[in-house]
Amino acid sequence: MKGAAARPPNRRQVIALGVGGVMLSALPEPVGATQDEVSAAIAKLFGSGAIIDGRVMLEIPKLAETGFSVPVSVSVESPMTEADHVSRIAIFSEQNPRPRIVEAFFSPASGAASLETRIRLSGSQGVVAIAQMSDGSLWRARQEIEVIVGACKPPPARR
């Protein structure tokens, strides 16, 4: 594999070598966040109040071949009225170099508290979704996912 490092690999070579090939040697390996850093990232957005497990529906695949684009769905049952609605949902990774993935804001005009997106994951790990209600209460869901090839490597076929 090192033999091709004398000149920059072209796209075809990179594809041929597959993920984790020559380009990886040039990269500073990203370091996953520690549990403390994950807790700090959550506290930075939501404060240090109690977070209760429940109410939040977090759906991710159990297994992903690559971590480049993993579908995630988060929803919370709520009447979405002025008096009782979900105001915020955020998604966190427990092992990515940066724990916070996305923070989304909702209002009664949203009609439903649901968010679907696609995320990057550096490897097998836990994903956490936290929702804040209009009364300020915080709710959590967590799911584990197995990722065969993490996203912190050069994609096999970059444009």
Partner: peptide, 12 residues
């Protein structure tokens, strides 16, 4: 505003 998001590099 019906939806707003702050994005991070952890999104695809």
């Amino acid at each position: 505003e019906v939806f707003r998001a702050r994005l991070e590099p952890g999104l695809s």
